[in-house]
Design a protein around this nucleic acid. Structure first.
Lengths: 141, 141
DNA sequence: TTCTTATTAAAGAATAATTCTCATTAAGGA
DNA sequence: TCCTTAATGAGAATTATTCTTTAATAAGAA
């Protein structure tokens, strides 16, 4: 994935966030490490560029990015949080054999869901968004 | 929810698991504490009946129950695991305002999904099951 | 450009959830 | 009932994450 630093800086500006080297390098890492990295994956990756970045800083920055809608958390049944740089609505393929989580986009499916819930309201609940967790196995696994 | 101890003992027998008071009381707790309890919720609940149960035992038993398909893990974006005593396929309503997670069953939806993915295969991936994470807010929250 | 100030980061201690180790106990078959 | 093996208790250890304090720095103002 081609990641332009200038784009990243812009995103921070638009949200009124200060542009710090730590923030830039962390968001860049999430974009480059496609497959839903953990905080630890990110730390390992950026140590090369920013050897002195503090662990606490990474967690703090990740929180800030989530709060400002620049990244999302990915839910798993493990006790390590994973992050997603793609904020447009999409679904996830979870592998039963390994820790791989792949993105799955399907407009037809989204239309189907949209229609279904347009007609069928859920009593006492207002839907904000829907993410499918599709569990299965990749051929390669 | 009415929970019969005899049913619980049967479930263990069917899986070839030894019937211990700890296992019985933990599975019973999960059935009674409807809303997807954490390990801590369970410990707190069962301390009344089994004051000496060890924390490690609870986690061990929960693992065993999951491995044997008697309960499921519920994924969240928090770092505490939650458990679900309902093993039949169903979906979840996640509240944005609080920690409430409610079950959502919808056969019509399941048929829709089944049809959709019968026609539209995902390249290189074999689907085992699909859970919808429906995020939104409950009126009461 | 330099100054000012609030915000952010570093460092490492603290916490919380979960796992591990090992001695003890108990379930279930013989 | 006894024996074997698996499960539990107790608490230490680990791991991911958060918190606290102090020092550094980004960004707007002068």
């Amino acid at each position: 994935m081609k990641v332009l630093i200038e784009d990243i800086r812009n995103k921070f500006s638009l949200k009124g966030l200060k542009i710090t080297p730590q923030r830039v390098v962390i968001l860049e890492a999430i974009y480059k490490l496609n497959n839903h990295p953990t905080a630890d994956n990110i730390i390992e990756y950026i140590r090369e560029l920013q050897p002195n970045i503090a662990t606490g800083t990474v967690y703090k920055v990740l929180d800030t990015l989530v709060e400002n809608g620049l990244i999302k958390k990915v839910t798993t049944d493990k006790d390590v949080m994973r992050y997603d740089g793609i904020i447009e609505n999409h679904h996830h393929l979870y592998c039963s054999e390994c820790d791989l989580i792949e993105d799955y986009k399907d407009e037809e499916l989204d239309k189907l869901l949209h229609n279904h819930f347009k007609n069928k309201k859920i009593e006492g609940f207002k839907i904000e968004d829907i993410v499918l967790q599709i569990r299965g196995t990749f051929n390669k696994c």
